[in-house]
Each structure stands twice: as C-alpha cells, then as structure tokens.
Amino acid sequence: MPVAWRTTLQPLINEAQRYTTLDAELLQAVLADEPTYLMREVPPPDVLIVVLDRLSPAWAARMLAATAPDHADIYLAACDKSRTEAVRYELQRMPNPFPSALADALGRYLDNSAQAGRVAGVVS
C-alpha cells in the first residue's frame, strides 16, 4: 500500500481494530449461555430514572425487563400516568425468558449511559 494511502487509512484501521477486541469473560459467558446481564449492577434509582426517561416507553420497558425488573415499580411511580400505562403495556408484552443477548446489550447500554450521565453532570 502506498505511504499516502496508509497515512489516510490508518485512523480508520485503528478505529476498526477497537471493535475487534474481545471481552474474554463475556465471550466465555456467551459460549456457556450464561445470562451475563444478571451480574451487572443496577444504578441508583435516580440515575435509572434519568436514563429510562430518555427512552421511548417500549425501550424503557425492555430496559426494565432486561436489567432491573425489581425496580419497575420505583420507575413507574416516578412517571406520569400516560407513560406509566404505556410502559406497563410494553412490560406485559415482553417475552419470557427475555433474550439473553438483548438483555446483555441493554445492560451495557445502561452502564454506559449511567456513567456518561455522571461524567456530564446530568445525573448525580
């Protein structure tokens, strides 16, 4: 490859390589079909509420079902009536058992959103 091309493409190659890094624990859990999302820590209720409020009712319900089913009542108590009804409706439609790969992805999203909110000062 010509040097000029390499210089132009190297940042893209570096970025692409970030997505090829494997999390050994996650890979082992997936191969063992373990629900890794159960091992994740749920953020405090105030942080959870801020993250869930940014999602549509359907995605908030999925997030609750996947990562914090025991916190659904706490969240719904903080919502207005129409949102509560919409999230409850979606919760009733969730598959049982919840797909573990989706639950794990939502757990990571919740972790990342909570951390990003703390860094940005949006959540305490």
Rank of each mutant, 00 (worst) to 15 (best):
P97L: 08
P95S: 05
A29L: 15
Q10S: 04
P69M: 06
D46N: 15
E34A: 10
L106C: 09
M63R: 01
H71W: 00
L38P: 10
A24Q: 09
R88H: 06
A29C: 08
R62D: 05
D73V: 10
I74V: 13
N14A: 11
P69I: 04
R54H: 07
I13L: 15
T8Q: 10
H71Y: 11
P69W: 09
T21H: 08
A86L: 11
Q92G: 12
T20G: 15
S100T: 12
A61P: 01
Y19T: 05
V47A: 03
E85Q: 11
Y37N: 14
V87L: 03
A68D: 07
R18D: 10
L22Q: 06
P45C: 06
D33H: 13
R118G: 06
L12C: 06
V42H: 12
P95R: 12
L22N: 00
N96Y: 08
L64R: 06
Q28C: 12
M94D: 00
L106Y: 05
I49Q: 08
F98W: 04
P97Q: 06
N14P: 02
G107K: 10
R6A: 15
A58D: 11
D80H: 10
T67L: 04
K81G: 02
M39H: 08
I13C: 05
V30Q: 15
R93H: 07
D53E: 05
A32W: 05
A114I: 14
P57A: 01
L12W: 09
R83V: 10
S56K: 02
A72D: 09
A58Y: 01
R93E: 00
I13G: 03
W59G: 00
S82R: 09
P44K: 08
L9S: 13
I74E: 15
A24G: 02
T7K: 12
L91D: 03
L52I: 01
Q92A: 11
D111N: 03
M63N: 02
A105N: 13
A61T: 00
A66M: 00
M94G: 02
R108S: 04
V50P: 01
E85Y: 03
A60T: 04
A77T: 07
E90H: 14
P43H: 11
T21R: 12
Q17G: 01
D23N: 09
L27S: 04
R88P: 02
L27P: 05
A72K: 09
D23L: 01
Y109Q: 15
A66E: 01
A101M: 12
S56D: 09
R88F: 04
T7W: 07
T84S: 02
M94Y: 00
R54I: 00
R62Q: 14
L9I: 10
S82Q: 10
L64E: 05
W59S: 09
S82H: 03
L102T: 03
R118E: 14
T67M: 11
A66H: 00
K81E: 15
N14T: 12
T8F: 12
R62C: 07
A60C: 05
M63K: 00
I49E: 15
R18G: 00
S56N: 04
A68W: 07
A29E: 09
S82G: 01
A72T: 10
T8Y: 14
A24W: 04
A101E: 14
Y109H: 08
Q17N: 08
V47R: 05
F98H: 13
D73W: 01
Y19M: 13
L91Y: 00
P99E: 12
N112Q: 07
P45W: 02
A78Y: 03
V42L: 07
Q115V: 14
A116C: 02
R40W: 11
